Simulated assay, not measured.
Amino acid sequence: MKYPITDESERESAVEAATVAVRNGDLVVFPTDTVYGLAADAFSEEAVRSLLAAKGRGREMPPPVLVSTATTLDALAVEVPAWAKALVERFWPGPLTVVCKQQPSLRWDLGDTRGTVAVRMPDEAVALAVLERTGPLAVSSANLTGQPAALDADSADDMLGDKVAVIIDGGRSRGEVPSTIVDATGEQGRILRRGAISLDELNEVLEPLGASITDEG
């Protein structure tokens, strides 16, 4: 079901519907600060499998995890380098995804992560409102694999409507470029995917720390 959010009452109804759907193990779609996202409970193996199946993906392409606060990173990851924390402080909430070593105690299965987790805090009020109620969500772009990422609710509905319980319609997404993905699992940072934040912007933060990032995106 599609939920518009043209006023505060509609927004509350949409957020609550998405929250209930996630808790029931269903998939939801909502706008982020980049493109529309397809979301599932990160701690439900069945829900994550449904997300991957909906997109036509296998376990070799695990979804990143969205969070509502930067402090959640410490609950999901270990050995986060100081330079990565500096990037998080500067660019969260925003279009930066950080790949870190996963907290070994986590009871979830996002796919073939090789002991890592990709984490981002989006700069989008509705997405954050859902995340505050649900906790971390496995989220991928709302599209079928190989198709362009959905920039509005109608596009997401056309591709995924029969697979999701709730679509929050926030109009056209504010950003058309995906997040920049940075590998923070080693001493030297690497860009794994070029996105909304440039290499120069990243290194501008890191230069005073004596650190830098290379671009392998």
Results as ranks from 00 to 15, higher is better:
3 Y>T: 02
6 T>A: 03
7 D>Y: 09
8 E>M: 08
9 S>P: 01
10 E>M: 14
13 S>I: 08
14 A>R: 11
14 A>L: 03
18 A>L: 04
20 V>F: 07
23 R>V: 00
23 R>E: 13
23 R>Q: 13
24 N>R: 13
25 G>Q: 15
27 L>K: 07
28 V>G: 00
30 F>W: 13
31 P>E: 05
32 T>H: 13
35 V>W: 04
37 G>Y: 10
38 L>C: 01
38 L>M: 12
40 A>K: 04
42 A>W: 00
42 A>I: 03
43 F>C: 04
48 V>R: 04
49 R>P: 01
55 K>H: 01
55 K>D: 05
59 R>K: 13
62 P>H: 12
63 P>D: 13
64 P>F: 08
65 V>M: 00
68 S>W: 03
72 T>A: 15
73 L>K: 12
75 A>M: 11
76 L>D: 10
77 A>F: 15
81 P>W: 07
82 A>Q: 12
82 A>E: 14
87 L>R: 07
88 V>S: 04
91 F>A: 07
92 W>I: 05
92 W>S: 03
96 L>P: 03
104 P>D: 11
104 P>M: 11
105 S>P: 08
116 T>K: 05
122 P>W: 15
124 E>K: 06
124 E>I: 02
128 L>K: 07
133 R>N: 08
133 R>M: 00
136 P>I: 11
137 L>T: 09
138 A>W: 00
139 V>E: 00
140 S>Y: 05
144 L>G: 15
155 S>V: 14
158 D>C: 06
159 M>N: 06
165 A>N: 02
169 D>G: 07
173 S>Y: 13
177 V>E: 11
177 V>I: 14
178 P>C: 06
181 I>L: 12
183 D>E: 02
183 D>G: 07
183 D>A: 04
187 E>F: 00
187 E>R: 01
190 R>V: 09
190 R>E: 03
194 R>G: 10
197 I>Y: 13
197 I>C: 10
200 D>V: 05
205 V>A: 05
206 L>M: 11
207 E>W: 12
